[in-house]
Each structure stands twice: as structure tokens, then as C-alpha cells.
């Protein structure tokens, strides 16, 4: 464990609640260890704030293991910060230097309203899933895992798409606040597999319509989403969704 600690200048978006106007506030934070995770650094700040009788900074987090998709944050203008394929909770303070200014903002989109400070409401994603991101089947005993043979390549593609943790970094980093990477991943993980094919057309229609309705922007194929995605979800999923949607428009 290294002992040398850093002092950071933090610029953080503070907003009391959904309806009030927010602004950027500055904090000096000494005693930051390079071994801390980014969220532990915020915990330290909050401890100081609470001890001095101030309101702590609200931010989203849960697993702190990079698997739940709950953490967010625009860090110095990049979703989940400067490190590739890394969620905010898995980002460590060794990515920063003593004296650095760190700008921390919430993920911004019309469809992601700010609850408080850095906390945003991402339930728009749940609505997209509820619109069609599922398969219909009779519950009961689990079917035999090997009853339906699926080629290795297809299984891999579906698994890659299923790696999406629904964090919303794709929306946050997109110039147009488009949700196409998320939606296409959730659509692909089902459309690729035989179990998902039966409802593929209806699913494509419903998920895309819901996504549009919620006020996400339109994709301009700039690929900032792919570059910011902590799970490496690829643009080929959006191409697949484009095909699936076109096909389903012909049949629906």
C-alpha cells in the first residue's frame, strides 16, 4: 500500500432536487489515496461534508464491482472516466495526479432526469425492457440446457450483447443522447437465439418505438457509445437492430 496521498480540486454538480436549478460547486479534498476507488474518494468527501455539517453529495452506486450498472458519472467530460472498459466504481484514483482538477457531473439526457446532485433516474431503460426486452414462455421446471443446440459463434455474440449492465454511459457519452447501443444490446441478446426469434419482429417494433417515445436522440453513428461502454458492447449490435427493425416494419 502506498502512503503518499493527493489533494484534488473537485468540481461537482450540486442540485437539491428534480425541480431546483443546480450549479457546479468546488471542493478541495486532501488525503486521497491512489488505491481508493473513485467512489471511495467520494465517500471520503462525503464524510468530510457530513462532519462539517453539510449535505453530502448524492451519487448512485450498488455493487462496486462493475457488474450492476448502478454507478454513473461524467468524469472530466468522459462517461465513467478516462479508463477504457471500466465502470466508475472500478476506476481508481491512481488514474489522477496530485493537484488535478476533477469535474464530476451527472449523466445528462432528457430521458434521464436528475434526482439530486449526481443521481439520475434511469428508469427509462426499464421501460424499454418492459416494452419488449423479454421472451414469453410458460414458467415451470427449467428446460434441459442442451435441448436446443446453438452454434458457438451465435452463442458468443448473444453473450457479448448480454454483457450490457444498463448503466447508461452510452446515452451519456452520445452527442445526441441516443439509447441505441443499450436498446440494440438488449434486443440482440434475444434476437440471436432461437428462444428469442419467435417474438423478434414484435420486440424490435416495440422496443424501438418505446425508445423514441421516451425522448432519446437519434444515432449519428459517431460511436462515442461504443468507446465509452464499460462492457465493450459493439456498434454491430446497432446495425443488427437497424436490420431487425427494417425487417419487422415490412411484416408488421
Amino acid at each position: 500500500m502506498s502512503t503518499a496521498t493527493m489533494t484534488l480540486k473537485l468540481k461537482i454538480w450540486r442540485q437539491a432536487d428534480n425541480t431546483s436549478k443546480g450549479s457546479m460547486k468546488e471542493y478541495d479534498l486532501p488525503g486521497v489515496s491512489p488505491d481508493m476507488s473513485f467512489l471511495e474518494m467520494l465517500d471520503l468527501l462525503n464524510e468530510n461534508l457530513v462532519n462539517s455539517g453539510n449535505d453530502p453529495v448524492a451519487f448512485d452506486h450498488d455493487c462496486r464491482e462493475g457488474i450492476c450498472g448502478m454507478c454513473s458519472l461524467m468524469i472530466n467530460g468522459e462517461a465513467h472516466g478516462p479508463q477504457k472498459l471500466t465502470t466508475t466504481c472500478q476506476l481508481h484514483m491512481r488514474s489522477f495526479k496530485d493537484g488535478d482538477t476533477v469535474v464530476i457531473e451527472p449523466f445528462r439526457a432528457k430521458a434521464f432526469p436528475v434526482h439530486k446532485d449526481l443521481m439520475v433516474d434511469r428508469s427509462a431503460f426499464d421501460e424499454i425492457i418492459a416494452a419488449g426486452g423479454f421472451i414469453s414462455m410458460n414458467a415451470g421446471n427449467a428446460p434441459d440446457g442442451n435441448a436446443i443446440p446453438i452454434g458457438k459463434e451465435t452463442a458468443d455474440l448473444a453473450m457479448d450483447a448480454a454483457a450490457c449492465i444498463g448503466c447508461g454511459a452510452c446515452v451519456a457519452s452520445c452527442e445526441n443522447a441516443s439509447a441505441m447501443l443499450f436498446t440494440s444490446a438488449k434486443l440482440s441478446q434475444l434476437a440471436l437465439l432461437p428462444q428469442g426469434k419467435a417474438e423478434a419482429a414484435e420486440r424490435a417494433q416495440k422496443m424501438v418505438k418505446k425508445m423514441d417515445e421516451l425522448g432519446f436522440g437519434n444515432c449519428t453513428n459517431a460511436a462515442e457509445c461504443e468507446a465509452s461502454c464499460p462492457k465493450g458492447i459493439e456498434l454491430s449490435n446497432i446495425a443488427r437492430m437497424n436490420r431487425e427493425f427494417f425487417k419487422s416494419s415490412l411484416s408488421k
Binding site: K11, W13, M24, M74, N76, G77, E78, K84, V103, E105, R108, A109, K110, A111, S173, N176, A177, S178, G215, F216, G217, A222, A223, E224, C225, E226, A227, S228
Partner: peptide
């Protein structure tokens, strides 16, 4: 789709 702009926004350079 994004009524409130970012205070600071960087291109990742990979997209």
C-alpha cells in the same frame, strides 16, 4: 434529447 448541456465534455478519441 439533451436540454441541459455538460459543463465539460470530451471526445474519447475512439469514436
Amino acid at each position: 434529447a439533451r436540454p441541459v448541456k455538460y459543463h465539460s465534455k470530451k471526445r474519447t478519441g475512439r469514436g
